[in-house]
Nucleic acid binder design. Structure first.
Lengths: 203, 203
DNA sequence: TATAATGATTGATATATATCAACAGAGTAT
DNA sequence: ATACTCTGTTGATATATATCAATCATTATA
């Protein structure tokens, strides 16, 4: 840990700024210390947001052990500060400290499990179910409170749920009309968790 | 390696048989030594095939380091033989041999990169592009020859490309009619690689 | 203040895709 | 030989979703 602390340096990003771009070399890995970031794949005309990263969490791509390239992009959603740690230091730690290596593998595994759920949601549920899933993700995993302030844009909401911005807005409106939730100034409150859960499960 | 060899045991599966089921405990990891297997997520009414596994390749799920459960199912597509290795032996190796650990992380990373491509294909391309991607996957990565015999069913083809069986068949028919490929008795030959590549890229 | 620029919203329309139903062919059991 | 199951195939139809265009709201800028 001292090794990491000695070789890290701090950076800050304004909302909207890109932290790194898909395809570029990745000489260090990123630890988000404040704010909110997103990691996303730039696909064919659209982006797919893989996850939102809040403090204190790490952004490590699969490229580190393959070809040292980033396989997704990262950008600040809100103003962010982050620590950059040299990848070689990180790799050294993996080799020398089995506990650290196990912990790392565990994190990668959790990420992988999350991605499985996400893929099933994206490919097998229709829009209502996907938006429901994203709302649960935001309230339970990211903002961790029920009336929460959505600091992400509608486009981000759409990129999280794999649909067009317009469709995302429409579903949100339907949920409002059915009394499942309220939205005021981007403050979203889930009123009927049970029904929303059911929508998530019935696709 | 001797450690692994001493603790493994061999099993054979007939085509169609299930190797393990999503949700069950995973006390060992599987090495496919002959035949062809598939790993797939059982979703909402449909399956999504994550990958086909051919010899000699390993099936290790992300659950090993999380809760010892399988997060996807595995089944034999053709008759298979496989070696089962105790997970505890495997974990011991990871701790004691940094090269082995690095190699493992590398494999997990490659799998992860493959999944990224797959997600983008599934969520951002339409059916023609997705079928094109699957055909390239089969010819380049699985069967590794150009006129190749499709030992997977149409349903599997559909589950690989995230669409209904009927749609998969229809796209295949269109490709035949346009002279991009031929299909005889499940022997598929790509005639116009360039055009198929373009279909893959334009979505 | 006026004006541009950006993001959010809504409606109308086109289209990609799933679903349902029917049927054909191959293999298997009766 | 007959019935029967399973996979593959085709057509007709319904529907989920994207796209396009217009409008509105809000903030930034001159």
């Amino acid at each position: 840990m001292e090794l990491i602390n000695s070789s890290r340096f701090q950076v800050s990003y304004k909302a909207g700024e890109i932290i790194f771009k898909q395809g570029t070399p990745s000489p260090y890995f990123v630890c988000v210390t404040s704010g909110l970031a997103k990691i996303y794949i730039e696909g064919y005309g659209k982006n797919l947001i893989l996850a939102l990263i809040k403090p204190v969490d790490y952004i490590f791509g699969p490229g580190i052990y393959v070809d040292n390239r980033h396989y997704y992009s990262a950008a600040a959603v809100q103003d962010c500060t982050a620590c950059l740690v040299d990848v070689t230091v990180f790799k050294k730690l993996i080799r020398e400290n089995p506990d650290f290596a196990e912990e790392f593998i565990k994190r990668v595994s959790l990420q992988s499990i999350f991605n499985f759920d996400q893929v099933i949601s994206l490919t097998q549920k229709q829009m209502h179910g996907r938006i429901a899933d994203v709302i649960f993700y935001l309230s339970d995993k990211i903002y961790c409170q029920n009336p929460f302030e959505m600091t992400i844009s509608r486009q981000d909401l759409a990129d999280l749920s794999g649909m067009s911005k317009e469709s995302a807005i429409r579903i949100l409106k339907e949920f409002k009309e059915e009394g499942i939730l309220t939205v005021n100034n981007n403050t979203l409150e889930v009123l009927n968790t049970k029904q929303l859960r059911q929508i998530s499960e019935t696709g």
